[in-house]
Design a binder for these strands. Sequence first.
DNA 1: ATAGATGCAAAGAGTTTGCATAGGT
DNA 2: ACCTATGCAAACTCTTTGCATCTAT
Lengths: 124, 124
Amino acid sequence: MAYTTQQKLIVSAVIEKSNRPLTPLDICEAAKVEFPLLGIATVYRSLKQFVGEGSVRLVEVPGAPPHYEHVSRPHHHFFLCKQCKQLFDLVGCVRGIDAMAPSGFQVDSHEIVLYGNCPDCLAA
Amino acid sequence: MAYTTQQKLIVSAVIEKSNRPLTPLDICEAAKVEFPLLGIATVYRSLKQFVGEGSVRLVEVPGAPPHYEHVSRPHHHFFLCKQCKQLFDLVGCVRGIDAMAPSGFQVDSHEIVLYGNCPDCLAA
DNA sequence: ATAGATGCAAAGAGTTTGCATAGGT
DNA sequence: ACCTATGCAAACTCTTTGCATCTAT
């Protein structure tokens, strides 16, 4: 059974409080503010546990490194700006996407990513 | 200006003849059949050149390592089987996907991936 | 002849793992 | 007391780079 440690509590809190998906390094650096000795290996181990328990979701966006977010964030997809490499949330979802699979395939989930330029980069 | 070498011709041919996206290692091993001395570094360097020239496309699917395919393959998306980790082509594309972006965002391209179980894995 | 390409090995980035120690139960 | 979690460093995977050599032009 998993223990409740200071490190995990802080890692969990960092993810839950964030309003955007974070990389393992983002999480480690944010958590180090409160727990300077925290090692990156502990962050990876905690993330693996949280994802397994279902409280944290892995966000994999082609063109960006792996990010993690709390599952309480609603189902959404992302826009990746090719210039500034920032991830933006998209609201809503396209219906009928799962129907793209040929018959015989069982679809559990889907991922959509839009690529382009964000308003700020377009202005520059 | 880039030279035309045996290595690049073979790497290019391997990608063009394949009916599915390949990883750099897939490509290296296939090319070694005709050119045993070929090094993995040359494959990576060739891929970078081809992608820059626009003859090869990088296929990034969350949950799978980077794959490459020839641009002559039509625009399509993928189905990734969670069990056997194999990539399947999807035919067609959902209209109106680019409209998911908020106003002010310029959308250049998009990526869609479906996840689930393929017929073979469902049968097992 | 010359500039670019190659193969090897070493270097990097990101992630995982082994092990002795610290810490939760 | 016991068993798990931690921190560090080493190991691992994938990709890139430095360098001497080779090759296409």
